[in-house]
Design a binder for these strands. Structure first.
Lengths: 341, 341
DNA sequence: CGTTTTTCCGTAAACGTTTACGAGAACACA
DNA sequence: TGTGTTCTCGTAAACGTTTACGGAAAAACG
């Protein structure tokens, strides 16, 4: 069925070594033979067996992105990543690399699937998202010396790997600044309960900005719950039980915001009228919700491109002439003012 | 670094053949040696090199899902597929198969990436989505004899492959029935302009139901545009220009519906009040839009599981004792009545 | 005890590549 | 002409597995 390099060699009456060299653009092959080989490869519809190449070269020419659905995100989820993946794939393709997305089962920390990818050497490097404060995946990868990069920072791994993150700390502070400027003093924060690193960053920015404005950080105005709609719905009433309820809430996640708004509606509180609502990471849901939610938007597709570059720059085999280097960047989020605050 | 089967054999002082047989659960190996091998594999942290296995066996033990972002879906897209992929991955994992998601660049018909996957033998089978009426990918795959299944039907390929589709024809008819029962006679339809098969099915159901109710199908009430928000926004005014404008619109796509509602709003027309709006495929956006959009919902995760089963059943190497068989199924969409009609 | 069967394991080939090495031919140079 | 260099290509080993084959040892059987 599929033609091998042997078929090609037999057809051209030359050795497989020469065929391989011609195909791979090596210098020590006559220009004429190269042309004949390339032509024959086209007509015979030859393309090299990936397993064979990988086995010989010890490289798979593919990068694995670990996609981890959240628990409770059963119905739909993670539209966030699609444009990111588009940028990623475009950049990797330029270097002849394939992007493969490895799905984990929702709920677990994907440690097992990660091990599987690494141990069976299915990819030359992996990309992690949803980084945690202490991230065992990062520990594992640094320990094994497997190349990787992360979307999001972490305290793990001693910064010895490339990472691209969003400036959640600044976004949290900006959100507070904006609300304070609009006259709010009682500002609540709702964030995910998991160890997700962006939750910490957001809260740090929130706290810092409040203090800067001379506003005391009120523990009863900070709540955390599952990072989905149900979590927001369940946890938002907590911050409303305060003797002095908030006049504004910042949600660290779109799904939590939607759940929170549902809870508010049931209390007769209208976002945008009775309560200012801000969301840190914008998604289409924020835009189409009523009232449209003010949110901070990431540049997803450029981020995907950039992280691909950063990952490649860190791998000796792909790095340019100046050698491998570790790049870490933090990108801003852009405020999109809408109707909810 | 990574331990090979040779290391294992040397460590146990037996041959690599025996190690391999022990690991693969063959019968002709002593129970005692097997135990020792498995134990050593665990302590030495051995797991077989995938490239080696694939090369020898001629199988990669992985299934490729071709994920094709739509043109214009730059910002976010395809949340539709995540729960589907969750179901898919869970079922494939039961058979020891990995799911890899291959991203195409947005806009093209992913023919090239498909060829790449097939020719380099990166996967043992592929899964196609967004099937078209005449689908060159299906033609290509049937012609090469490469195993595949589709999410969605097509006229291509003579039904010689497993497929799982939603009953868009019935959903289109049901939508009409419901609107007619609510007193509507002028019912418009907005569908994607591409050759996407579900667009045809939807329109067929729409037409059939109208005729059944003795309502003439009015060409000026049928519009088609790009399958994204901009397309809906651009095309919806067309059906409003009719001398007898519609009192209801059925959108075949959530993004087009959102764009269409935006256009309606600019004309001072309020969905749910001045215009009944129904959407064929439900997404979270339909739920959170205001007014919440009545829509037809698919059972995505079970669909993913089922399509995995169907694909495996069609491949001799994975089919059960009764041999391979081609299964084709059409699943219903469930009406979710909300506020827009 | 002799013969047959079963159990278990080692040997070696094969999968499709890439690449180090060397060799022959052509060429340049003195 | 002799020597060194360059160009081009063939040979063969190697990557890490799986598996067909055969053989030795053990067990079963008469």
């Amino acid at each position: 069925m599929a033609s091998s390099i042997h078929d090609l060699a037999r057809h051209l009456n030359i050795s497989i070594g020469t065929v391989s060299r011609a195909l791979n653009g090596r210098a020590d092959v006559n220009a004429d033979t190269r042309k004949r080989v390339l032509e024959a490869a086209r007509t015979l519809n030859y393309s090299p067996n990936q397993s064979g190449r990988s086995l010989r070269q010890g490289a798979t020419h593919s990068i694995a992105f670990m996609l981890q659905p959240h628990p409770g995100d059963q119905q739909y989820g993670e539209p966030f990543f699609i444009p990111f993946l588009i940028g990623l794939q475009a950049k990797l393709a330029e270097s002849g690399l394939d992007l493969i997305v490895v799905m984990g089962a929702p709920g677990d920390y994907q440690q097992e699937r990660l091990r599987r990818v690494v141990e069976t050497r299915r990819a030359d490097a992996v990309l992690l998202a949803w980084t945690r404060r202490e991230d065992e995946r990062i520990d594992y990868l640094t320990q094994t010396g497997f190349p990787f990069a992360t979307l999001g920072r972490s305290r793990s791994g001693a910064k010895s790997y490339p990472s691209l993150d969003l400036d959640f700390e600044k976004a949290g502070a900006d959100a507070v600044d904006r609300l304070v400027a609009r006259g709010h003093r009682r500002i609540a924060a709702v964030r995910p309960s998991l160890d997700l690193n962006f939750g910490y960053l957001f809260l740090a920015g929130y706290r810092k900005a409040l203090r800067r404005h001379g506003i005391e950080v009120a523990p009863e105005l900070i709540a955390s719950g599952f990072i989905n709609e149900a979590g927001g719905y369940e946890v938002t009433p907590q911050v409303m039980r305060s003797k002095a309820p908030p006049t504004a809430i910042i949600f660290n996640n779109d799904a939590m915001a939607l759940g929170g708004c549902k809870a508010l509606a049931e209390m007769g509180i209208r976002p945008g009228h009775d309560m200012a609502v801000t969301v840190i990471v914008d998604t289409p849901l924020c835009r189409y919700f009523s009232p449209a939610l003010t949110a901070f938007r990431p540049a997803l597709e450029p981020m995907g491109q950039r992280l691909a570059e950063m990952l490649l720059a860190s791998i000796p085999a792909f790095a340019g002439p100046e050698g491998p280097r570790i790049i870490r960047e933090v990108w801003p989020l852009e405020l999109v003012a809408r109707d909810s605050d």
